[in-house]
Each structure stands twice: as structure tokens, then as C-alpha cells.
Design a protein around this nucleic acid. Structure first.
Lengths: 170, 170
DNA sequence: CGATTTGTTCAAGTTTTTTTGAACAACGTA
DNA sequence: TACGTTGTTCAAAAAAACTTGAACAAATCG
């Protein structure tokens, strides 16, 4: 009978203090963006690792499940925040972080911001076309004004995003 | 013995289709910003109501609890998204939405973005000062480069926010 | 081929966030 | 001062979001 491994759920056994703090930093960071903590852990560790890491490395070093690591990497890839490292003489895939702000911001805007902006615009259009019809003609003026305002907000948003990317693009 | 009120939890009895859809619109909108749905409901209803509403109006029209309404209004006030209406010959307070984008964006940046940016900066400083010391001198180069990069991100962020406000300002 | 390693999927479990509602404070009125 | 009304607070309930882990697919190796 073995001694039951008393191993606490210690993640990050292989990580130094600096790495743990940077990971913490990114966990906080991604929360602001409305992304799950695991994304911050994964990106953070990749960011502060001298060499590319495999999915299995992430699982071991962060103490997260294979499922989380797999899904997290997928999301990060679609965000353009992580890419597969080239030419490792090995079967498994290794991952590297994208580290230029332009690319990161661009990916976030493309995947998270634009879709909402677009769907917002079309919802507004439908609003205008159908829901507004059900309002008694006498009351329409106010509603019209407000919907116009919403539309101008969306438009402004659409104008600002490219500027933002340009500014950050440096 | 009364007939037990079969009243379904129907919210929004007094709202027309347009209003319900606009509220839905804002519920989605605030989610993107990482704010709770109730804020979207409250702001949305105020936005699409011809006249200011009281806390009690919000409770009845949205079918939410007094607690939610009270807390939601507080948050919206600190975000500068809602303000109390002046001079109603009445004891209770009535609320109006702020409807110019500049003010809304400004409030969000001030309350939600800046604090994170600031705390991020100071965390980085601590990182630099303490955690980096524990790294073996030979390995410092890589870590240094990455931390410098983080600092440049924060700096860029600090520069972009005012521009953003300016652009949206009109 | 069969065995082994690598990675994905998704239902169920866990954690976190949000909402509720009842107790209470504050204020005005009579 | 006693009473009704308005609004706040916060512990507990409910809902939503995230993570896990086991079953499975895909690819490689011997």
C-alpha cells in the first residue's frame, strides 16, 4: 500500500516567483477583457517562458486540466494571441505567444468587438423597421430620436476601431 | 379564501415591444463591457422612457428586486451614466440617463479602465523591483525584455485613453 | 496492424457572479 | 413622536461562467 500522495493542489511547482507573478498579472488583465482566467494563465506562462511550451507543459506547470489547456489554446489561437512554433523535431505541438500589441489588439477587436458591433447594428435596423411600427404615431418622435442616437453611437464605434488599431500599431 | 394570484413572473407588463427590444439591446451591450445584466436593463429602460423614472418604477416595470434597482442605480451613477432629475414636485427621486457618448465613455474609462491600468503599472514596478531579483543573473536578460514590453504596453494604453475620449468627444 | 501518444469534446461538477428579499436606516408628515 | 414612504445593505438563494475529467478521435510508431 502506497503512501497516499499528499501532494497539495500546488500548481506551478516548476515556476519561479517572477513567472508566478506575471501569470497573476495576466489573469487580472484578461478579466478586464471579459476572458476567463485560464486564458490569462496560459498566455501569461507562454509570455514569460524563454522557450515554447507544449499543451502538456501547460497542464503540468499550471496544474490545470487538459481540457482547459486545449480550449484555452484554441481561443488564444483564434484571437491571434498564440501561434504554433515552427520546426521542433518532435511530434507534439509547441506554442509561442504573440507579443506585439498591434496584433493582440487587432485580434481582440476582430473577434470580440466587431461581431458585437455588427450584430448591434443589424438589431437596430430591425428595431427601426418592425418595433417602431407598433408605436402609436403620436409617440414616435421620442423613440425615433433615441434610436437615431443609438445608430450614431454604433457608427462612431465603427469609426474609432480602425483609428485605435492604427494608433497602437505604432 | 382568495384565488391564489397566478400572476406569472411577467416582467415588463407596462413596456411596449420597442422598449423591450431596446432593453434587450442594452443588456447585450453591457455584457460586452463586463457589467451585470441588471445595469443594462435599468439603463436601457431609462434610455427609452420619455420621462424620468423612480426606483419604484424600475422595480415594477422591469420586475426586478428593489435591491437590484438600488445597487444598479448606484453603479450607474458612479459611472456617470445616470443622474437624478431636477425639480419634480415629489418626495421620491427620479432618474434620467446620460445620453452623450463622451460622458458615457469617459465614465467607463475613469471607473473601470484607469484603475486597472494604474494598478497594473504599480504591480509591474514591484515585479521589476523584487521578483526579478530572485532570478539568476544569467537568466535575467529574457525576463527583463518581457517586463520592458509589458511596461511599454501600459504606457501605450495610458496614451491612447485620452485620445479615445477626444475622438469620441464629438 | 495494435499500441502509444497527443489532442478534442462535452456533460457534470465547481466556483464565481448576480439577484433577491427581509431587516433596517433615513426622512418627511401629521 | 408615531407612522408611512423611500431607499440601502447584506446574507443567502439562484443563475451563469468556468473547469474538470473521462471518453473518444487522430496521428505516429514499432
Amino acid at each position: 500500500m502506497d503512501i497516499p500522495s499528499p501532494e497539495p493542489k500546488t500548481e506551478a511547482i516548476a515556476l519561479n516567483l517572477l513567472q508566478r507573478q506575471v501569470i497573476e498579472y495576466f489573469v487580472d488583465g484578461v478579466r478586464v477583457l471579459g476572458l476567463p482566467p485560464s486564458l490569462g494563465e496560459i498566455y501569461g506562462l507562454l509570455f514569460i517562458s524563454p522557450a515554447p511550451l507544449s499543451l502538456d507543459d501547460l497542464v503540468r506547470m499550471l496544474g490545470i486540466s487538459k481540457g482547459s489547456a486545449s480550449q484555452g489554446l484554441r481561443t488564444l489561437k483564434t484571437l491571434g494571441a498564440v501561434r504554433e512554433a515552427e520546426g521542433n523535431g518532435d511530434r507534439r505541438t509547441y506554442y509561442q505567444p504573440a507579443v506585439d500589441l498591434k496584433r493582440l489588439v487587432g485580434g481582440f477587436i476582430r473577434e470580440q468587438v466587431r461581431p458585437h458591433l455588427e450584430s448591434g447594428k443589424s438589431k437596430l435596423q430591425r428595431l427601426q423597421e418592425t418595433a417602431l411600427q407598433d408605436v402609436a404615431p403620436g409617440e414616435r418622435e421620442f423613440y425615433n430620436e433615441r434610436i437615431d442616437r443609438l445608430e450614431s453611437w454604433m457608427k462612431r464605434g465603427g469609426q474609432v476601431l480602425p483609428m485605435l488599431q492604427k494608433i497602437l500599431g505604432q
